[in-house]
Design a protein around this nucleic acid. Sequence first.
DNA 1: ATCATACAGTACGAAAGTTC
DNA 2: GAACTTTCGTACTGTATGAT
Length: 207
Amino acid sequence: MEISKTEVTYLDLKIFKGNKFQSTGILDTKVYTKPTETFQYLDRNSAHPLATFKGFIKGEVLRYARLCSNESDFLEKRNSFTERLLTRSYSPEEIAAATNGLDYKQRTNLLASKNIETAPPLVFKTTYTPHIKTCHLKQALTKHWNLIASDKQLSRLFPDYPTIAYKGVSNLKDLLVKSRFPPNQESDETEEGLILKNLKDPTQGFT
DNA sequence: ATCATACAGTACGAAAGTTC
DNA sequence: GAACTTTCGTACTGTATGAT
């Protein structure tokens, strides 16, 4: 057990007496990393969805911004994270894109609880087929989005560019499995009826 | 049939709890 | 005591479910 008069760690946070402590009595905080941490971040060549790479990068930098009370600590942590990502085959451009809009100057907002009453995202929903990639949906939407943006009514209805989402086609399970049993039209004395009866009254054992 | 919501599953971090 | 699992919170998107 470590004992210190100037700092203490809690989970991934280090709380310490910084420069302003003498004059204000206010403690500082920064990210705590265990000495045994090996930084084996998800390799960019791994077969994961793009959102997975983007998600954890943004999540990490957001964590640094929230935990560091001094911008210099935040920058130091973010830079070393960037260097480690580069060794894991990420490009500087995609690292920057993942954290685009995340500004340490807005830390107060980052610390505020998330507003969950924001408008739901606009989703362009279509059914998935193996040939969907050849349709270049995103390019087509981007190319013709100006038709909506230039229309007075449509631009008000659809102020934001949509996210493309695919609905799965019905598979065998969808066709064969239902979440409810159909109305029991047969006698409860059938095998199925007895099972249902016992499920409703677990105190009665199977016979 | 459609829509909204909850949850699943991928990732990151840490310590605490559980199992063998 | 080592190894494994759980917990909590953040990001992302797709799926399952229940209500209308």
